[in-house]
Design a protein around this nucleic acid. Structure first.
Length: 856
RNA sequence: GGGGAUAUGGCGGAAUUGGUAGACGCGCCAGACUCAAAAUCUGGUGCCUUCGGGCGUUCCGGUUCGACUCCGGAUAUCCCUACCA
């Protein structure tokens, strides 16, 4: 027991103690209420970063708090361990993805342990563990048999140099991020999860998910993008006999504008275009060019609207002999609606731009409510009544929509439809370091699922990554196999699964991570699921969270309809950025301030301060958690992560912030040291009736205890920290005069120690030792604020005149309005203000406020 | 273009949900200790003031005895999404 606060020593000591006594290992206890707290598991990139520190500290506070509140807490941790960076790193460092990944896991696990997190490491899993992806392959087969997986041709970004598919974010300005090659659009046969089958259900349950931030729910709703509309078949009229009388199905959310339709536009990927090319060779090149144009996301928005005229027309269903010309247009998406639209230029800006460019007819069919005249430049999109529309004239837009839908339905040329923006989830990746897909292609062309008893289908380890392309595809033996039924030759699927598949069910696996026979044990799963609190970054608001919800629904679990009861999305960790004279980013540690100017220490160059941005390696504005823990200790780092900003908002890393955290840790330690003999006093102090200063202290302590408890429950950790500060300051200033005072201090300190444990667990444990308690701190229940100290016999009532604060009076609790007026006679300025005036009204809120309204 | 969020001192941020605006921290100022500095401790700190007060939660308006909080409008910033028919 040294008198100096030494986090290095005490943090090690308690981490070993917790681990040796397996204090955070969890198991099913039937008659105890469970609490499953989960933070998004990390990708093992090498080292933990400040974002992890914040995320996991937040989760840990909740885990430790709930534990103290008497819950049976499960708080597991694992690794999102498959993925492309491992392949790249393996090439750079001439190692294997597997070695690289497991080495990183070991480093990062060690770092997480140094943070003092109350994690149940006995449940640790990595998605690249054979035991994990074995079970995942079984899930794949289940979904395959349930018809939730299918294969189809799909466009991908193809890097011709690396021989591989790239994700959208790996395509920068139309070029591959590594090779710099022009990226092509290639049609590849790929596997898909039928997530769209659950679009309705995924949408519906959002409304009842009260524990989720509105923001995230809104993002998911937009992503699913439900819209009501109408499909209408148009008959083709053409000189090309092969295409004449064919049908084009269009989707529209504005069937009311059908009389304003003046052209039809097809996606360049529309099946009819394929046929058209055969007939109309002259447009083939134009179509190919248009197809290849869709490369980078940003360039799409800037693209002009282009159309290729065709020899086709479609017949207007309600205007006899009216033909609408058919164009192939670059702004029509094949995978939304039916890949074909009719254009109504007067009431859609895109259609109008297109019509102007190609000199097409423009017919106004909505007379807007605000009577704005149509200027032929700005489409009228607001509400109004129908004009120029035959039998629809005079109707409102809603009435017109209904009328048309009824009509096309009766004519059997269309129907009302619901359309979703959500698309099926493409899960094929032409990559090595991922879960192999248990499928083979037999020589007779049949697709065969690998039987369950032949799983796991393991990744080969003798691979060659030095050549571009997928090593599984090039492997000399791996992909060759035989059909288990017929013995015919077969070739394995060489694509692996998207890593989002791995993370779409890991929360289920945590319930029984060692189970060799099934993905999860039903009994354990039914006890622990759903996750009570999920904590992670908002960047996963859509994909990961939607996929996880889809998996949970697709598994058809009886008792679990949604995986995450509550979701908390924490903000990012930001930091100053600096650039030197060469416009090169400079590490903050390499910057010193002299006067008003910044200089780079290593080069002596002048440095300019850039904007505060989220920590990222590329901008070099990162702070290494490990060095912070070495210098200040994990408790200080934890404290700072919680103290400065509300958890949902971004926090700015600052030297003064971490120093402040260090200071308060030290202050608490010194406070305990100074009063240690009181802490070990053995009197039955609970029964003491405190008076005077001691009573005031107890009141403050219990009020703050209540606030801290409520703040943690509301995730307002910064407020909880503020209340702890008040507590520490009050106890520090308290002077022990009488014997009872010592007991008041002892009780206060014990409460203090207990409630800081979720925040600074090592410090708290070390302090708790002074109490000589037989109960270890972790088993000490969360204290409950004593009602006795929460009640005040005297209250301050604020007195307002005409709504403005003019003074206050200290009165007995529950005093009447009359009592207040009596007291006011002694308050000169108020008394002066009201004497001789006519009191119009007097509003009195007991124990709070008296507002006197005077005649002016 | 569509959707969402936010706006409070020099700074990060509180405010029991309509009832003392600015808790707590940082910074700053003053003092104590010190030969001195660091550290620590004590006190002060929204703005203006003729010391009576006046003004203050982005701006304009409304509801109310009373508005940071509710309603209408404007501005700014941020995030998501993006030719979704």
């Amino acid at each position: 027991m040294s008198a100096k606060y030494n986090p290095k020593i005490i943090e090690k000591k308690w981490q070993s103690y917790w681990s040796e006594n397996k204090l955070f290992e969890s198991k099913v206890i039937k008659d105890k209420e469970k609490y499953y707290i989960l933070e998004m598991f990390p990708y093992p990139s090498g080292k933990i970063h400040m974002g992890h520190v914040r995320n996991y500290t937040l989760g840990d506070v909740i885990a430790r708090f709930k534990r103290a509140m008497g819950f049976n807490v499960m708080h597991p941790m694992g690794w999102d361990a498959f993925g492309l960076p491992a392949e790249n790193a393996a090439i750079e460092n001439s190692t294997s993805p597997k070695t690289w990944t497991y080495e990183n896991i070991s480093t990062m696990k060690n770092q997480l342990k140094q943070m003092g997190l109350s994690l149940d490491w006995s449940r640790e899993l990595a998605t690249c563990d054979e035991i994990y992806y074995h079970q995942q392959q079984k899930l794949f087969l289940k979904f395959y048999n349930d018809n939730l997986i299918y294969k189809k041709e799909s466009l991908v970004n193809w890097d011709p140099v690396e021989n591989t598919v790239l994700a959208n974010e790996q395509v920068i300005d139309g070029k591959g991020w590594r090779s710099g090659a022009d990226i092509e659009q290639k049609n590849l046969s790929q596997w898909f999860f039928k997530i769209t089958k659950y679009a309705e259900s995924l949408m519906d349950s959002l409304d009842s998910m009260d524990g989720w931030p509105e923001k995230v729910k809104a993002m998911q709703k937009n992503w699913i993008g439900k819209s009501y509309g109408c499909e209408i078949d148009f008959e083709v009229s053409s000189d090309l006999t092969l295409l004449n009388n064919k049908k084009i199905k269009i989707f529209t959310t504005r069937p009311d504008t059908i009389f304003g339709a003046t052209f039809c536009a097809l996606s360049p990927f529309h099946p009819l275009v394929e046929e058209l090319i055969k007939e109309e060779k002259s447009i083939e090149n134009q179509v190919f060019e248009m197809r290849s144009q869709k490369i980078s996301e940003e360039s799409i928005a800037k693209n002009d609207k282009l159309g290729i005229p065709t020899k086709l027309s479609i017949k207007h269903p309600f205007i006899k002999d009216k033909l609408l010309p058919v164009y192939i247009a670059n702004f029509i998406l094949m995978d939304y609606g039916s890949g074909a639209i009719y254009g109504c230029p007067a009431h859609d800006q895109r259609d109008l731009d297109f019509a102007i460019k190609y000199n097409l007819e423009i017919i106004q069919v909505i007379d807007p409510e605000d009577q704005t005249p149509f200027d032929n430049k700005n489409a009228i999109v607001g509400n109004g009544r129908l004009i120029n529309s035959d039998f629809l004239n005079g109707l409102s837009m809603d009435e017109a929509k209904k009328t048309i839908i009824t009509k096309v339905d009766a004519l059997k040329i269309g129907k009302q439809t619901i359309n979703y923006r959500l698309r099926d989830w493409g899960i094929s990746r032409q990559r090595y370091w991922g879960c192999p897909i248990p499928i083979m292609y037999r020589e007779d062309g049949k697709v065969i699922a690998v039987p369950e008893d032949q799983l796991p289908l393991l990744l080969p380890e003798d691979i060659d990554l030095s050549v571009a392309g997928n090593p599984l595809d090039r492997h000399p033996t791996w992909k060759y196999t035989k059909c288990p039924e017929t013995g015919m030759n077969a070739i394995r699927e060489t694509d692996t699964l998207d890593t989002f598949v791995d993370s779409a069910w890991y929360f289920l696996r945590f319930c029984s991570p060692l189970n060799q026979h099934q993905p999860f044990d039903d009994e354990e799963m039914n006890y622990w699921m759903p996750v009570d609190q999920y904590v992670g970054g908002v960047e996963h608001a859509i994909l990961h969270l939607l996929y996880s919800r889809f998996f949970t629904k697709a598994l058809g679990l009886e008792n679990v309809k949604e995986p995450f009861n509550s979701l908390f999305t924490q903000g990012m960790v930001c930091h100053n950025t600096y650039k030197n004279e060469e416009k090169v980013w400079v590490f903050p540690e390499d910057v010193e301030k002299k006067g008003n100017q910044y200089f780079q220490i290593s080069s002596g160059q002048k440095v300019t301060e850039g904007p505060i941005e989220s920590m990222s390696k590329s901008k070099k504005n990162v702070i290494d958690p490990e060095s912070i823990i070495n210098r200040y200790g994990a408790d200080s780092a934890r404290w700072f992560m919680l103290s400065d900003s509300p958890p949902e908002k971004d926090i700015k890393w600052s030297e003064s912030g971490i120093k402040g955290a260090w200071k308060i840790c030290q202050k608490i330690w010194n406070l305990i040291i100074q009063n240690r003999e009181y802490l070990s006093m053995n009197a039955a102090s609970q029964d003491i009736v405190f008076e005077g200063n001691a009573l005031s202290l107890m009141k403050l302590v219990h009020q703050n205890l209540k606030s801290v408890t409520e703040s943690i429950e509301k995730f307002q950790m910064n407020v909880a920290i503020a209340k702890v500060f008040e507590l520490v300051n009050a106890i520090s200033k308290f002077e022990t005069v009488k014997e009872d005072d010592k007991h008041a201090v002892a009780q206060s300190l014990k409460i203090l120690i207990r409630i800081i444990e979720p925040i600074v667990p090592h410090l708290a444990e070390e302090c708790w030792e002074f109490t000589n308690s037989t109960n270890s701190l972790l088993n000490e229940p969360w204290p409950k604020a004593n009602e006795l100290y929460l009640i005040n016999n005297e209250v301050t009532v604020v007195v307002q005149i005409n709504g403005k604060r003019r003074g206050e009076v200290l009165v007995k609790k529950d005093s009447s309005e009359e009592d207040i007026y009596n007291e006011l006679k002694n308050v000169s300025n108020i008394n002066n203000a009201i004497t001789g005036k006519n009191i119009l009204k007097s509003i009195y809120v007991q124990n709070k406020i008296l507002n006197i309204v005077l005649e002016s």
